[in-house]
């Protein structure tokens, strides 16, 4: 009695599976060519040691052990870790605050405000960095001139001790709007009956935000956190461009990505660069998994 149904289900399954594979095929091809193949090639490269004289020799994990003992690699990692623990929270809290403020509907010209806040993300990071570099300028930059206007000496924002903070500021400026849009979109899908109910119960806007809105956009928040983690570890454009403005403050190892780039193209050591890139990838995967599992555990507990 059950046999005919099972047979029918399996033919449906089969045609469906085939359709699914065909639909997914374009993606798979691109994924394979643009992601898996280069990744495999990088892994292959990282197994060799190359010399300008003598060429390439297979060297197993030598590049990895070298990277694990490389103080410049750790210096870059610790700088992006600083980004993770300082810049990411500042950026996300600001984005959340703006999204909540816009969502209350009490902001005038909220459409224009949304656009203005989002605008920096639409500006290429190259332009943004050059612009900020100009503002930071020690003698003739706008910030210095403002300080001098009120009779204070201008801070040297491109100095070695300030460059990390100055870079964080640029990254915040670029990505607050982007994160704000993700969170704002998530806020818009919350059913408004919940707010009405809460208001009837006497909750004010802060209470609504804290007890309804934030828990409701939890998934979106997690998404922005994960994106930001990956983003900070992949920091490259901003320090690479700031290098032209403040070469001695930024250095070649500001972030692990910049370090790998400089090793590949200035030191001409593609193999070691591949190993650094792989190690960085592993670090990102581990941290992303840790964050997700912490979040999931909390979710299960609550």
């Amino acid at each position: 009695m059950t046999r005919p149904t099972a047979a029918r289900r399996s033919t449906i399954d089969r045609t469906q599976t085939r359709a699914a594979w065909i639909l997914i095929l374009p993606f798979l091809i691109v994924f394979l060519l643009a992601f898996i193949v280069p990744l495999g090639y990088a892994a292959y490269l990282s197994g060799f040691t190359s010399q300008l004289v003598g060429g390439e020799v297979f060297s197993g994990l030598t590049n990895y052990t070298r990277a694990l003992q490389d103080p410049q690699f750790y210096a870059g990692l610790s700088r992006v870790a600083l980004f993770l623990f300082v810049q990411v929270p500042i950026m996300l809290i600001a984005a959340l605050a703006l999204a909540l403020a816009l969502d209350t509907g009490r902001v005038r010209a909220s459409k224009a405000a949304r656009l203005l806040i989002f605008l920096p993300y639409a500006i290429p990071s190259v332009v943004a960095t050059l612009m900020w570099g100009y503002l930071y300028g020690n003698d003739f930059g706008l910030i210095t001139q403002l300080f001098e206007l009120i009779g204070l000496p201008g801070p040297d924002l491109l100095d070695k001790s300030n460059i990390v903070g100055s870079t964080m500021n640029i990254v915040c400026w670029e990505f607050i709007g982007y994160n704000m849009i993700i969170l704002y979109a998530a806020l818009r899908v919350i059913p408004t009956e919940l707010y009405e109910a809460a208001e009837i119960d006497g909750a004010n806007q802060f209470r609504i935000a804290w007890s309804i809105k934030i828990p409701a956009i939890r998934q979106a928040l997690i998404l922005t956190v994960i994106f930001s983690i990956i983003g900070s570890f992949q920091l490259f454009n901003e320090p690479n461009l700031l290098y032209n403005i403040a070469p001695n403050s930024v250095g070649t190892d500001f972030s692990p990505n910049l370090y790998a780039y400089n090793i590949a193209f200035k030191n001409q050591d593609v193999n070691y660069a591949a190993a650094i890139a792989f190690l960085l990838g592993i670090v990102i995967v581990i941290i992303s998994i840790v964050v997700q599992s912490v979040v999931n555990r909390r979710e299960r507990n609550s």
């Binding site: 300028g137 020690n138 003698d139 003739f140 930059g141 032209n244 403005i245 403040a246 001695n248």
Partner: peptide
């Protein structure tokens, strides 16, 4: 000052 950078041109 680093050369061929904004501040230096101004300088």
């Amino acid at each position: 000052d680093p050369d061929f950078a904004d501040e230096w041109y101004q300088g």
